[in-house]
Design a protein around this nucleic acid. Structure first.
Lengths: 335, 335
DNA sequence: TTTAGCACTCTTTTGTTTTGATTGCTAAAC
DNA sequence: GTTTAGCAATCAAAACAAAAGAGTGCTAAA
């Protein structure tokens, strides 16, 4: 447990470093952050904070920077989750009032808003279909060998996909499929679309596997796939840590690797907001970055997941404040 | 008009520079590229090529690099459009045989293939709807205040969009719309969806503007918008020119600016393959890069546009060879 | 427990020298 | 007339050296 002054020193160093990106010296802290003691005293505190692992030095005679552990303590104990200005509140409110036709658009807009306000890069995916219930499936014949399937879920998510056949199909067949699929799936969770359904349909329906098989396959595929949206990739390049070519390159590599981003957004949701600092990230590639993920929900319904990716020296207070405010705002809007 | 030896020298310098990214010295060229003369002679040729603007020097005592004009001459006169290996041919062939459900997926696969083979970043958009004919429009009711519109064009392009209403609508209304829209639009070019249609529908249909208006607006919107796909952004970062932070930053900025990319893909199609070298690009932001765009068609039908963006020191021979081969291959596949 | 004072450390900056690659020019060779 | 050998001149890049400056850690006094 840290005493009050140590907390103040740690907080001061973290916030100062977040602002300036320069190692923080004992001198620069005197008479700031409520620290009314000499630089020598602060130096002693710093030495102790370093000994217990909250601070690092870049070299013997440099100022201090927070360690991953230091950032973690800051996020858990010292954060200010009201770090958001009136202008920002206004901006966010106006952006979130945009009318959208699809839930995914709301995710996009939210991700864009977060990126604009925080000046970090965001990645996002739409709502997960797993655990949602099928409200309706509609098949629409397009030409003679092509059909569109539209799936509507209980939370208002709409997914559609095109299915091509190797043989002609007719309106009658489409109608039968419409009836059969809905009969079997309406009100059921999406996982129901699986082997048993396939067998049932093969039994019940007179026509060939050539028709049913691609339908089920394609529907499963479209329900599983995560579309990734990227916002403000360029914003990160204004940060001093991106002056290192290696960092910049790693960053572009991460954003270019869909599986990585997808995993990043799909792991660990003990909380609605999760913070992974440097090495806390499971993936090796992310160890020089921090990731904050945010599952945005309305009335408990998943609306998609947004991740902020930036340097470890991320403005956690700002990021978390913005997320919390957006969360609240979305809930209000839905009422 | 350049004499034979000058052509050889220019070609040698361009290709050498493309390979090594280092200024080319007179010495390194002797006994290569069929140049059987001394370095002094090559130096004299170089001096003349520089005088007439085909070469540049980075400083007084450095080797030569091609100027934009030099690259242009190379692209117009010296290029080898068979610069493609057997492995690459095999790879491309196998990739292009992937079965796709949507035309846009073909564009994506082609762009990805080009990026893989050339090691450059590609951007792409699907086919333009303008000038296509409407084959069919289908409206599907989803719930009570939501509808999906699916538009099918003569080239097999499928576009769909969700429309939300402020009032309930019923199956009957949807059917009427289905009839009216198809009656008026089937076989017509997409531009037909405009004021006159709107007025016609207002006159003919009994229900309110609240229903027709969002339908037309949303359809127009979805038909106009370009979805941009990006492939291999990270590949560029392995090139030495991206060691300059300014270049790297500009590059990410370009890719992040959708209008810029969109404009890039939508300008000037005198030829199917267009090459813009450095300052030849209309946009200021692109002046340090070269862009090669490729409108891929089958039987004269637009299938989308793919652009390669890379350094001015781009391997034009490779890029153009790949594009030409893909063009041919797609045509063959369609038969 | 706090702080003033100071030696020590290490980075950053600045300047200087050296090295080496490459050219342009001149004059001789072909 | 064209080509080439030879060589001084040029300039970037690397290596080295010195100085400046920022910050710490420790000691001893307050």
């Amino acid at each position: 447990m840290l005493d009050e002054r140590k907390k103040k020193v740690l907080q001061a160093i973290v916030e100062e470093y977040i602002n300036t990106a320069e190692p923080v010296s004992s001198n620069s802290l005197t008479n700031h952050y409520g620290l009314n003691c000499s630089s020598a005293t602060i130096r002693n505190e710093m030495a102790e904070l370093e000994k217990i692992g909250y601070l690092d030095k870049t070299h013997t005679s440099s100022g201090r920077i927070p360690s991953a552990k230091g950032y973690r303590y800051y996020v858990d104990e010292l954060i200010n989750d009201q770090a958001i200005s009136l202008e920002e509140i206004k901006y966010i409110s106006s952006k979130l009032e945009t009318k959208v036709n699809e839930i995914e658009d709301l995710t996009k807009i939210t991700a864009n808003t977060i990126s604009e306000v925080t000046h970090y890069t965001t990645v996002s995916i739409g709502p997960k279909t797993t655990s949602q219930l099928i409200e309706e499936i509609k098949f629409v014949l397009l030409g003679s060998r092509m059909m569109m399937a539209v799936i509507l879920t209980d939370t208002g998510l709409v997914k559609e996909t095109i299915i091509k056949f190797d043989e002609d199909i007719n309106e009658k067949q489409v109608e039968t499929m419409n009836y059969m699929f809905n009969h079997k799936l309406k009100g059921q969770p999406i996982e129901t679309i699986d082997r048993p359904l396939e067998e049932y349909l093969y039994d019940e329906m007179t026509y060939s596997v050539n028709v049913i098989k691609p339908v089920i396959e394609q529907i499963k595929k479209v329900l599983e796939e995560d579309k990734i949206y990227l916002e403000g990739a360029n914003k990160s390049f204004d940060l001093p840590e991106f002056n290192s070519l290696e960092v910049a390159k790693n960053f572009v590599n991460i954003l270019d690797t869909k599986e990585l981003v997808s995993d990043m957004l799909n792991t660990g949701f003990a909380e609605d907001i999760n913070v992974y600092i440097g090495e806390e990230n499971e993936k090796e590639e992310l160890k020089d970055f921090s990731v904050v993920t945010f599952k945005h929900k309305v009335n408990g319904k998943d609306l998609g997941t947004i991740g902020i990716i930036g340097p470890k020296r991320m403005d956690y207070s700002k990021v978390i404040s913005v997320m919390k405010y957006i969360s609240k705002k979305l809930d209000d809007n839905s009422k």
